[in-house]
Simulated scan of single mutants.
Amino acid sequence: MGGRERVSPRRYVRLRAEAWGFALGSLCFVAGALPWFAQGIGAVGTAWTFFVGSVLFTAAGAIQLLLSGRRVPRAGTSAGDVWDWWAAAVQSVGTVLFNVSTFAALRAAIATPEAAGVGWRSDAWGSVAFLVSGAFALAAARRRHELWHLQARTPQAAWLNMIGSVAFGASAIGAYVVPDTGTFVSLFWANLGTLLGALCFLGAAVLVRPGVTAEVAAT
């Protein structure tokens, strides 16, 4: 089976939903970060795109944490599973923080769509949560033999998620508004970091989709 494992039909459906949620959410962030897309649909449409993407991330993260097969660490839980669970838990917190920031940006865009600087920029606290989650995921990937499922954390996907988290972090730094000038540190990196991060998350979602990592059990 080349490292693939059999999973029950119910879990297979959940894993597919998780992969699709992360993939579609990533596509929303990719689209929203493209200048020509933002110009074409306007501030409100772009804000909706980011908000829908964040909701898809949160739904996928909830499936990953609660329904995929992970269990809350307890006595006797392997180190690999502990890192894996915490990676999923912290990532879920990060997605909720992105829900908050994208919703705030959406409300602002609806209220004053023509205002200068209106639009979502990568959330600092959400980006920190993604960075921490990425580090935990890399630790789990190094102990794959201990995980609840061999493919729960693959090195390639873990590294893509980490690189994407670094890119989101760069975006958050670029989006910081300097109090003395009222300007962004770097609007270029605020947008490029979001785009690169979303592309990395998309690649990771494709790599861990169950069609690649698992076979469906007969029963």
Rank of each mutant, 00 (worst) to 15 (best):
F184G: 00
L138P: 01
W189K: 07
L195R: 13
M162H: 12
Y176I: 07
A140I: 06
A158K: 06
T183G: 06
L147F: 08
A157Q: 08
A135F: 12
A167Q: 02
F136H: 09
L192P: 01
D123K: 02
S165I: 07
M162T: 11
A158G: 09
S122I: 13
L131V: 14
N191V: 04
L192E: 11
L195I: 10
F136A: 11
A140R: 08
A137M: 10
W148T: 14
A190D: 07
G164K: 04
W148K: 09
E146W: 06
H149S: 14
L187Y: 11
L160N: 03
L199Q: 07
D180P: 00
L131H: 08
A157F: 07
S122D: 04
S127T: 05
W159D: 02
V177Q: 11
R142S: 13
F188E: 15
I173C: 04
L131T: 05
H145M: 02
L138D: 00
W148F: 13
L150D: 11
R153H: 12
A152H: 13
W159F: 09
T154G: 13
V166N: 05
V178Y: 04
G164Q: 03
A198K: 02
R143A: 08
G174K: 09
Q156L: 15
S186D: 11
W148M: 03
A170H: 01
R153A: 15
F188M: 04
S165E: 05
A198M: 12
T183A: 14
I173K: 00
G193D: 04
A152G: 08
P179K: 13
Q151F: 05
A190V: 07
H149P: 00
S165L: 11
Q156T: 11
I163H: 04
S122P: 01
W148V: 14
V132N: 03
R142E: 13
